[in-house]
Write a protein that binds this DNA or RNA. Structure first.
Lengths: 209, 209
DNA sequence: GTCTATATTCGGATAGAC
DNA sequence: GTCTATCCGAATATAGAC
């Protein structure tokens, strides 16, 4: 019943879960994100298929863990970097780093930003790290002068599109990442410089970047 | 053995295929593109499941037909419109129309531009209408002054991203479509105006818009 | 062309022994 | 926690009568 993070039982369990997730990503790479089979996954981690249910209540729970894990990877990746300097330069770096992050794993990109799995919807808990990411992104935008909701829409569209093209047409490369600087400067050139907070007509729906 | 398009047998067959495709789209809307079942599809068109094999050799053949059908819809949609006027205005119209086309059907957009189905790869025949679309798009870009390969990469990324955001965050609406004009002017402002055909460093790979 | 019947395979999930 | 054994359902696909 102990819930200490230091509990050796819990530690072993967490390690096993981490191992399963890692193998799940590689399996998704091989077969497609929507085509992972729990049988194959179990075999790849040296277990029989029913034993997976000790760690995940269902297949959707596995997807949920992968979703959260992907965003944790993203946040860790961003934590290693520094976006504190000149706002424009920081945004350029941020954009380039994001594109390289997507480029590194097409399936992870698909899980985090495309969300095309038939029945899967992330749970509130799994969703949380994705919100943290959104906060960081909008903060960097604001600091660089992209505040207007229409401008943010344009920014998010361009980022998403560049990431998708990077993943689809130059996986592992940097063909679109190399254009981060141009893209940011282009956006800054047309951004509304108004200090007022009037956000025109659009509704403030959640725009999942 | 007659292969005339006027053959009443062939006409009935083609009509049935068209009906099946139409129902398949609505089924994809309901269950997800990757979750279509041939049983449900057959039932929805008043057939038993094995009878579908009279019209499609396999499930991938159905996907292939949907892929081609979606691009045919897109080409017909574009044929109804006029992009012959001022190059900049034509490109703006083209972009807005594209976004509204995507907005009208998320699953169709997914099939044409996301390509996230586990085992599916379009056949050369099904692929042909998509090439025709790419030709038209690049022609309009060139006419408006977007010729440099880096500029085309940026254009395709922005289009793809706006379409995705439109579909994901405002399906059926026009939140991003309304920004077509700003987006195009923004791109034209940074496009390389050089008349020379030097395309810098990047490789001329096929960039599926 | 459409049907019934069935083959085949594979999926996720559960029961219960150890 | 892991296993064996099994359930149950669903999927695509095929055989052969009508």
């Amino acid at each position: 019943m102990t819930m200490h993070a230091e509990d050796p039982r819990q530690r072993r369990r967490d390690a096993k879960i981490a191992e399963i997730l890692e193998v799940a990503w590689s399996l998704a790479l091989r077969d497609g994100l929507g085509a992972i089979s729990l049988r194959d996954l179990a075999a790849a981690v040296g277990l029989r298929q029913p034993s997976l249910y000790v760690y995940f209540d269902s297949k959707n729970a596995l997807y949920d863990a992968m979703f959260a894990d992907g965003y944790q990877q993203l946040l860790s990746y961003l934590d290693e970097r520094d976006y504190e300097g000149d706002p424009r330069d920081a945004l350029v770096d941020f954009v380039r780093d994001l594109l390289l992050f997507s480029s590194a794993s097409a399936v992870r990109h698909q899980m985090l930003f495309q969300r095309t799995l038939p029945g899967f919807e992330p749970s509130p808990e799994g969703y949380e790290p994705s919100l943290e990411f959104s906060r960081r992104a909008t903060a960097l935008c604001e600091r660089a002068g992209i505040k207007d909701s229409a401008d943010i829409d344009l920014f998010s569209a361009l980022m998403n599109g560049m990431a998708h093209q990077q993943v689809a047409n130059d996986p592992g490369g940097s063909r679109w990442a190399d254009q981060a600087e141009r893209a940011v400067d282009m956006l800054l050139a047309v951004a509304h410089k108004s200090t007022s907070k009037t956000s025109r007509t659009t509704t403030p729906t959640r725009a999942h970047l």
